[in-house]
Design a protein around this nucleic acid. Structure first.
Length: 254
DNA sequence: ACATTAATTATGT
DNA sequence: ACATAATTAATGT
């Protein structure tokens, strides 16, 4: 896929790099992102001057579970999947992070290693800073703390509801809910409905919902016949969100 | 109400 | 042509 946003031109073209080896990052990269939006230009400037930008191919790991959390990240473009691996080698997907959010800020929750692995779900671009700057970011930059705790709280809330789902709902409602969340968070409006903005396989969906790819496949096929969704390989489009909502609250027993 | 196994077909490089 | 993804049926818990 192509990265056609203005961010990427900025990062890829090295223009006439002045005295630095790296192209100077433009302030417009951060000015609109919530954690930085209330900062003055020169603050953003110093933040950017301390940042490293990097591109990640689809499937490339941003960081690994258990690694020393030496850097934290701001995702500028793309999507990142946060996964955990069990002893038996099965993957469990915790959540997806869209562009514009922080990730890997282990320091904020009092850890010195990453609690999970982050993998680029699409080709992605992220800025990163050494973790030792985290505390100064919190102290020096107005709104940074509240915004990060907001996203932290949001993610905890989501994991919370997912736990409840796993414990109480059955498979059909679980994948319906997972789909709904995906189109809410990372949905892109297309003509026939809303499509998940990154390649996602049945296997991925099954890892999100603690089921098998076969069950997911069957469910999607069934929904497709009823006109609820449309899917081709690695692409899922939701045509009738409301019907999915109805399904997601389906009857509790028998 | 599901998973597992296995066989088969489709799809993208 | 090859690997990966998706479907489908049959069988198991």
């Amino acid at each position: 896929m192509e990265l056609a946003c203005n961010l990427c031109q900025n990062l890829v073209m090295d223009g006439q790099a002045p005295r630095k080896t790296l192209p100077r990052l433009d302030e417009s990269l951060l000015i609109h992102l919530p954690p930085f939006s209330r900062l003055a230009k020169r603050q953003i400037r110093t933040i950017l001057d301390q940042a490293t930008s990097r591109r990640y191919d689809e499937g490339a790991a941003v960081f690994h579970e258990g690694d020393p959390a030496d850097r934290f990240f701001m995702l500028l473009d793309g999507y990142v999947r946060v996964i955990r691996i069990t002893e038996t080698g099965e993957q469990v997907t915790a959540l997806h992070i869209p562009a514009g959010q922080l990730l890997g800020f282990a320091r904020a929750i009092g850890r010195d290693t990453y609690p999970a692995t982050a993998v680029a779900a699409t080709e992605s671009i992220a800025l990163s800073w050494p973790t030792r700057l985290w505390d100064t970011f919190l102290a020096d930059y107005d709104g940074f703390a509240t915004e990060t705790y907001k996203t932290l709280g949001y993610r905890m809330g989501e994991m919370n509801t997912r736990i409840v789902e796993l414990a109480t709902q059955q498979v059909e409602q679980r994948v319906a809910n997972a789909l709904l969340r995906l189109i809410n968070q990372t949905g892109r409006k297309v003509d026939g409905g809303i499509e998940i903005d990154f390649p996602i396989t049945r296997q991925d969906l099954s890892e999100l919902t603690a089921t098998t790819l076969h069950t997911v496949s069957r469910l999607l096929s069934g929904w497709e016949k009823r006109g609820l969704v449309e899917s081709r390989r690695k692409r899922i489009k939701v045509c009738n969100p409301h019907a999915l909502v109805v399904l997601s609250q389906g009857q509790a027993s028998d």
